[in-house]
Computed example of a mutant assay.
Amino acid sequence: MFTGSLVALVTPMDSKGAVDRASLKKLIDYHVASGTAAIVSVGTTGESATLAHDEHIDVVLQTVELADGRIPVVAGTGANATSEAISLTQRFSNTGVAGCLTVTPYYNKPTQEGLYQHFKAIAESSELPQILYNVPSRTGCDMLPETIARLANIKNIVAVKEATGNLSRVSQIQVLLDNKDFVLLSGDDASCADFMQLGGKGVISVTANVAAAEMAELCRLAAAGNFAEARRLNQRLMPLHQDLFIEANPIPVKWACKVLGLITDDTVRLPMTPLSDTARPVVERALKSVGLL
């Protein structure tokens, strides 16, 4: 279940900022129909930073309920306090959640030993499969290949979302791994095809929010060894990979979801603000260029 195209799902909200259950169901149905491998609920793209603790839990549980066994759901459980990450992780035991995605602690910049002890403590607190998440551009903290390889030896740490965009990391991690079943997932849509050619098994994707079938097909082609076709498809999707980040994620992708009728409103919570008037035509052109509009 932790291979192929996993979507980093947006959290749809109404005009007042409350979670929009009807739009959430529509999104889930769309991903089931499109062949998405799994949903990651309330990660960075799901606005974990601005959801209250109880809301965070509720959105994940609603996603599991609405998915109704049709598609695996991975819960975002990251926090920069180890105790909070453990609390979130334990809350999802026996709920139907397939695993947890836990980002490196943000802002407090732990050492590599601190990162190892943080993720070790989380993994030992739960039997749920754990996916590490390394995204230095958002957290100010880079988990090095040596630390990832150490953590891969812990039984229920099964994968990493590597979002540096540095393709040399794939080989660096693989060389160090004793656990050959450990899964490497791209966290960078633009380099996903090349990441998989180097040995990665899939992507946790922002682009898949609006191009779910295309990202599923890209991953299928790459997994089958058809890298030339995978790269061609990736090149066609490149305007989305780039322009969905013209402003901070998830501002552009939420606007795109609304334009495509996947959600009712593109509301984001402060300090995020709606997509600017100058950025809207750029995202619209990207959607048109790949045939989504």
Rank of each mutant, 00 (worst) to 15 (best):
A216T: 06
L176H: 02
R169G: 00
D188M: 14
L198Q: 05
S171L: 07
S205C: 07
K258D: 00
G199T: 04
K201N: 10
G202A: 02
F245T: 11
L240Y: 02
L198W: 03
R169H: 09
I246K: 06
P274M: 12
Q242Y: 13
P281M: 08
T278V: 15
L240H: 13
I173C: 06
R236E: 12
S168C: 03
V170P: 03
E229D: 15
Q242A: 04
Q174R: 02
E284L: 14
V283P: 02
V210M: 03
A212P: 02
H241F: 09
V283F: 04
A256N: 08
L221Y: 03
S186P: 14
A163W: 09
Q172Y: 07
L237T: 04
I173Q: 01
L275C: 11
G225T: 12
R285A: 15
A256D: 04
P250C: 04
A230R: 01
T264C: 06
S168A: 09
A248H: 10
G200F: 11
G200P: 12
R236P: 02
A224T: 08
I246E: 06
G200M: 08
A279S: 15
A193Q: 10
P239N: 04
V282E: 12
L275T: 06
C219K: 14
R169K: 14
S171A: 04
T278P: 00
L167F: 03
V283W: 03
A211R: 02
A211V: 09
E284F: 10
V210H: 05
A208R: 00
L167W: 02
L244H: 01
L233S: 05
R231K: 15
P271G: 10
F227K: 06
I263F: 01
V282M: 11
D178N: 14
S186A: 14
L221V: 09
R220I: 01
N249S: 12
L176F: 05
C192Y: 10
E214A: 13
V183R: 15
P274C: 11
Q174W: 02
G202R: 05
T278W: 12
V283D: 03
L185Q: 13
S168H: 11
Q197W: 12
M272F: 15
P271M: 12
G202M: 01
N234R: 06
D266Y: 04
A216L: 08
A211D: 10
M196V: 13
Q174I: 00
R236V: 11
E217C: 08
N234F: 07
I246V: 15
V268T: 05
I263V: 14
G187Q: 15
